[in-house]
């Protein structure tokens, strides 16, 4: 028998609206991302600002093209644009950013049925297309943090003409994110830089601490289910520590694994999206665990340096099955009907 407090209480109408409408949820997410966004603009300068603005504009434009005008007001397209901008390399040609934003909303969101329906997170649909179509640009368009000219100059590659390759090559820094350094057998960046975010990387993925803060805010505001990021990060931590213990030469330390790449951004802001994650509590644990395991496996045992994006997409593909496995029984098993 369940304790009385956990029993479902049915009350007759009228009901009071809790005020938890879509625009409110989106607003909370944007607030949670604000510190990271500001930090990204401070560290990467104009490159980060332009990437974020173009991503948001492209998403709003696509939303306007594919949905009734009233849909713009719910803020979901803006959030998609912000997240996409934060997940891309800062010196990526801006036309690629715009193409990614347009596909995120057009294909990732509206072809799957609009808000709340997507099987895969629209941001990841846009990003995975860019990764598959322009692998060279996605692997090289990094910018060194805190350069002197960041406030006044855009990287030359950002301004490539639409559909053209940038005239100048990508910054000589290519391949120097902490994760690619780890892949090459290096120890990666110093832990303090890694967690603070003063390393090369995608616009808004570098500062693990600020992302953690934003995630905790979302949990406190009850926008996301805390089980998903906790299960995901715990799995990565345990597996990462175990691998490091087995072979410290090959596998980075646990805190490096946790603080690098898109892990924090993915765990708190992408994995927890209600339309791509399971509905039940047990399901949320399984989902987080599966993604966490996939992240470690892809990072440590594949040719890719970073595996968060693919792990999240594969995890979302599992969601319908997890929902079926964890469907609550109307009566406890073995109970008399």
């Amino acid at each position: 028998m369940m304790p009385a407090s956990r029993r479902l209480r049915l009350v007759a109408a009228p009901h009071l609206h809790g005020g938890r409408a879509v625009p409110r949820l989106m607003l909370h997410s944007v607030i949670a991302l604000l510190p990271v966004t500001v930090f990204a603009v401070v560290v990467f300068g104009l490159a980060a600002l332009a990437t974020i603005v173009v991503a948001i504009l492209a998403c709003l434009l696509a939303e306007r093209a594919f949905a009734p005008p009233s849909a713009l007001g719910d803020g979901s397209a803006m959030l998609t644009g912000l997240l996409l901008g934060l997940s891309l390399p800062p010196a990526l040609p801006l036309w690629m950013v715009a193409l990614g934003g347009f596909l995120a909303i057009g294909v990732g969101k509206h072809l799957f049925g609009g808000l709340g329906a997507p099987v895969f997170h629209p941001v990841l649909v846009g990003r995975v297309f860019l990764q598959a179509a322009f692998p060279a640009a996605m692997a090289q368009a990094w910018v060194a943090p805190l350069t002197g000219a960041r406030a006044t100059e855009l990287p030359a590659t950002s301004l490539a003409l639409p559909f053209m390759s940038p005239a100048a090559p990508y910054d000589g820094l290519s391949g120097a994110t902490p994760l690619t350094a780890v892949k090459a057998g290096d120890t990666g960046a110093p832990l303090a830089d890694l967690w603070l975010g003063t390393v090369a990387g995608s616009v808004g993925e570098t500062s693990a601490l600020l992302l953690l803060l934003g995630g905790i805010y979302l949990v406190a505001m009850r926008v996301i289910d805390w089980r998903i990021p906790v299960a995901l990060l715990a799995t990565v931590a345990v597996l990462g520590a175990a691998l490091h213990g087995l072979d410290a030469e090959r596998h980075p330390a646990m805190l490096t694994t946790l603080g690098s790449g898109g892990l924090m951004l993915g765990a708190w802001f992408l994995a927890s999206d209600p339309s791509v994650s399971p509905m039940t509590r047990r399901g949320a644990w399984i989902y987080g665990l599966a993604i966490g395991a996939l992240v470690v496996v892809i990072r440590q045992y594949s040719g890719q340096a970073e595996g968060v994006m693919y792990a999240l997409l594969l995890g979302s593909a599992l969601t319908p099955h997890i929902d079926r496995w964890t469907r609550p029984q109307p009566l406890p098993e073995g109970a008399e009907r």
């Binding site: 297309f129 598959a132 179509a133 322009f134 640009a137 053209m164 390759s165 005239a167």
Partner: peptide
């Protein structure tokens, strides 16, 4: 048919591009 510095969409030559 495209200008010389056209950036090819590599995915189009891969199986995935066929599906898209």
């Amino acid at each position: 048919v495209m200008p010389a510095d056209f950036e090819p969409w590599q995915v189009m030559q891969l199986p995935g591009g066929g599906f898209f």
